[in-house]
Each structure stands twice: as structure tokens, then as C-alpha cells.
Amino acid sequence: MGKTRSRSQRKGDRGTMLLLPTWLVLGGLLLLPLLILLGTSFHPPDDVGNPQAISNWSQFFHSGDWAHNYVQSVRPIYLRVAWRSLWLAAITTGLCLLIGYPVSFYIALIAPQRRKNLLLALAVIPFWTSFLIRISAWRIILQDRGALNALLLHLHLIYEPLRLMDTPLAVLIGLVYGELPFMILPVYASLEKLDRTLLEASSDLGASGRGTFWRVVWPLSMPGVAAGCVLVFIPGIGQFIVSDLLGGSRTMLLGNLVQNQYTSGRDKPLGAAIALELTAAVLAMLIAYAIAAKRRGMEVAL
């Protein structure tokens, strides 16, 4: 006779069993690499950039060598890169909101029912193409002899080609282009759920279209806007592909910095330290967002 378990205990067991694969995946593919990274970040680099084995552990701890990489990571040149990444991600988020919100607004509240799905699909279809190819396409557009300059020259709007490639502006364009759907979709979801009678009530009580928007639609779309901003900002701050392809060596972001340390820079432990700092910062932002949202009674829908 085995020990008996109550109904709720058995349900709990089943729940745990079903979550087991999730825990394995999260543990193996997420936690483990992070732990490896953490370990790497404390070691000094050897000649080829790999973490060097420690011979004398007590000396290693007492001399403070273990913090070497972290101390390195806050040197001014690296801080400039961090600041630039922050700025670029913030501006990208702002632009995505500016451009994306009206699009979501149109699809959710103005477009006729039968066209909504089509429009949403149009916003998402670009994802079916390789991201790399789409960003590379912007090179063709923005180059000195690229499509945009050719058009502007032809229309005699400019007389010399505009220097667009390899600038922060190009990176910005690429980022906004790539991240826009991540703003459009959550904002759309928020607006779609809006109770239309609230808009009617607002109108009935005397609010014009603008009044209704700012006093009813905008506040109630906040969860979607917040989610969209998070979904744009966080990948934005860790970007390295866009800055690599469109920004050249002039526009180095944190992502490129880490990537460099793992390749030509030959200092994997430093790269690991920077990557972890970035991860910690992002985590802190997410936690702050979750706390703020919960406190306002908003749903934390990511």
C-alpha cells in the first residue's frame, strides 16, 4: 500500500510533470549559458582571448583580479558606446510609437472589418523574409549611389548625394523599419479590445474626436503602448546586426562591442562582462515595468 495523496496533491503533481520540459529547456538553454557567461566574465583573458585557467585561487580572489573585466567595462570609451546604444534605442522606440500608433489606430478603429486581417498581415509579412536580407536592402537604398540618392538627384532636389550610409541615421532607419511591427501589434491588440460604447458615451457627453482620443482612447491603450515600447526598446538596445550592416565602424553599439570582443578584440571575458551588464540592466528595466504596471492595476501583457 503506497502512501495516498489527496486530489489537489495529485493535480499538483501533474502540473509539475507537465512543466518539466519547460524547466529543462529554460534551465539548459537559458540558465546554463548565462552561468557559463558569468563564470567567463570573472576570468582574465589569455593570449587568444579565452578565459584563462586560474592557478592560484586565493591570490585570485584577494588581489581583486576577479573584478578586472568589470572594472574595464566602465572605461569612458565603452561608456560612450553604452550611452549611444541607450539613446538610439530610445529614439527608435519614440519613432516606432509615432509611426506605429496611427497605423494600429487605423486598423483597429477605422478600417472596415473585412480589411483588418489583410492589413495586419501586411504588417507581419516582412517577417517571412530573412532579416539580414531586409536590412541589406537598405544599403542599396541608402548608398551614395543608391536608390534614394538617385531619385532625389533625378528630381533635382539635391545636387550632391546625401551621406546616409554608415551613419547613426542609417542605423536608426534600419532599427525603426525592423522593429515597427513589434509596436503595431500590441497597440492594435489594446485598441481592438476597446469598448466602442465608451467612445459613443464620450461623444454624447460633449467630447469632439480629439477630446475622445486623448481622454478615452489614449489612456485605455496604455497597456498596449507600454508593451510595444518594451518590445522595441529591449531588442533595440542589444542590436548589432543593423549597426553592423548600416552603421559601419562609426556607429558602434553595445552589441557590436560584445561581438568584437569575441572575435577581433580577443577578450572574451570582457565581452562576457559587458553582455551580462546589459542583461542585468534589461532585467532591471523589465522588473521596474512590471512593478509599475501592477501598481496601476494594468495587465502586464508581454
Binding site: L198, E200, L205
Partner: peptide, 16 residues
Amino acid sequence: PHLRPVNLVFQHYALF
């Protein structure tokens, strides 16, 4: 609606 001298009480209240 916002310029009419009438007001409506909605069936499901429509409170903000």
C-alpha cells in the same frame, strides 16, 4: 452627438 442638447444613458452604462 457632442453638439446635441440631449444625453444618453447606455444599456450597459458605458462607464469609463
